[in-house]
Simulated assay, not measured.
Amino acid sequence: MATTAVTLADVVAALPLPSVAINAEERITVLNTPAEDLLGKGLIGRHFVTALRQPALVNAVERCLSGEGPCQARFNSIGGEHGTTYDVSLRPLGDHGIVLLSFNDVTEMAQAGQMRRDFVANVSHELRTPLTALIGFIETLQGPARDDTAARERFLGIMAQEAERMNRLVGELLSLSRVEAEERVRPEAPLDVRDVLGGTLRNLGPLAADSNVTLVPQLGEEPAHVLGDADQLMQVFTNLIENAIKYGGRDSSVEISTEIASYDPAMRGPAVHVSVRDHGPGIDAIHLPRLTERFYRVDSHRSRALGGTGLGLAIVKHIMNRHRGRLKITSTSGQGAEFRVILPMKTESD
Rank of each mutant, 00 (worst) to 15 (best):
residue 1 M to T: 11
residue 4 T to R: 07
residue 15 L to H: 04
residue 21 A to P: 02
residue 24 A to R: 10
residue 26 E to S: 09
residue 31 L to W: 06
residue 42 G to F: 06
residue 45 G to E: 05
residue 45 G to A: 09
residue 46 R to E: 09
residue 47 H to K: 13
residue 48 F to G: 00
residue 50 T to N: 13
residue 51 A to N: 09
residue 61 V to N: 00
residue 61 V to S: 01
residue 61 V to P: 00
residue 67 G to H: 00
residue 68 E to Q: 15
residue 87 D to I: 11
residue 87 D to C: 08
residue 91 R to A: 12
residue 95 D to H: 12
residue 101 L to Y: 00
residue 110 A to T: 15
residue 116 R to F: 10
residue 145 A to S: 13
residue 148 D to L: 04
residue 148 D to A: 08
residue 160 A to D: 15
residue 161 Q to H: 04
residue 162 E to W: 05
residue 167 N to M: 06
residue 177 S to K: 12
residue 181 A to E: 15
residue 183 E to V: 15
residue 193 V to W: 01
residue 196 V to E: 04
residue 202 R to G: 02
residue 208 A to P: 03
residue 212 N to P: 01
residue 227 L to S: 13
residue 232 Q to P: 04
residue 238 T to I: 03
residue 241 I to Q: 06
residue 246 K to Q: 08
residue 253 S to I: 05
residue 255 E to A: 14
residue 256 I to T: 10
residue 264 D to N: 15
residue 277 R to Y: 04
residue 278 D to Q: 10
residue 279 H to P: 01
residue 282 G to M: 07
residue 284 D to K: 11
residue 290 R to I: 01
residue 293 E to M: 05
residue 298 V to W: 00
residue 307 G to Q: 07
residue 314 A to P: 04
residue 316 V to E: 04
residue 319 I to N: 01
residue 320 M to P: 06
residue 325 G to L: 07
residue 327 L to I: 03
residue 328 K to G: 07
residue 333 S to R: 13
residue 334 G to Y: 10
residue 334 G to K: 12
residue 335 Q to M: 13
residue 337 A to Y: 01
residue 341 V to H: 00
residue 345 M to D: 06
